[in-house]
Amino acid sequence: MSHAVGTDPVATRLPIGSGAISLFREGRGRPTLFLHAAGGAGAWSPFHELVSERADLVAPDHPGFGGSDDLPELRDVDDLVYHYLDLLDRMELDQVDLVGASFGAWVAAELAVHSPHRVRRLVLLGPIGLRVPEEPVADLFLMSPPELVRALFHRPELVEAALAAEPDLDQVLRSYRELGALARYAWRPFLNNPKLERRLRRITAPTLVVAAAGDRIVPRVHCERYAAAVPDAELVVVDGCGHALHNEDPAAVASVVTDFLAR
């Protein structure tokens, strides 16, 4: 698939569960499933563009996010794993390269634990999902929208740009809906599965964990513990980046990701 230069690809809808989800599919090469973070649904970003230049990128919106329906029957991350296994079956993708960011990285790791053979290579960008009581993930739910933006980006000019205009009503409602979906999946246990860390040994795919040097949402120790617990994993740190990683520095993060997937 390809789209005209200068235009974004059009999302397609796929009936599944009690409704339908929205997804982008673009590019040629190995099928690569990208699972987005709490933010970033519904949009084709420079990172998507760069990855799709070297892969067949499948980028769905999680239920409750972006253009996807709520699918209220899905209650937790475990349900999301089965949702994405269904999606892979429906798309007849036996094995994929799997890339997840933050919340999406948690879902990706759970999927790779559940069905190691479905994942050829795994990339976790600033993953949440582990229980680290001494250094928990920052409480996103307790932050006002501007506080969240300030915590996400490392570079002040990006924060200023993001906060320059007051969000309109639709943006406020969209973000409330998406964080509400996150609350449905992961309010308690708070953004973690206490059983995940000891299950990570099941992952067979070579795995890259990408940490942001200036992450103010997910403490570095989460990335380090993922890298330590997954049998064949390496950790890289991207400088000059906050938790937004691929949205803060799409070129650097895309090249780290695509180089690893091309190995």
Binding site: L142, M143, A181
Partner: peptide, 11 residues
């Protein structure tokens, strides 16, 4: 945002 956290109200 603390009185009406995400999910507390319908959209």
């Amino acid at each position: 945002h603390v009185v009406s956290p995400p999910g507390y109200l319908s959209v």
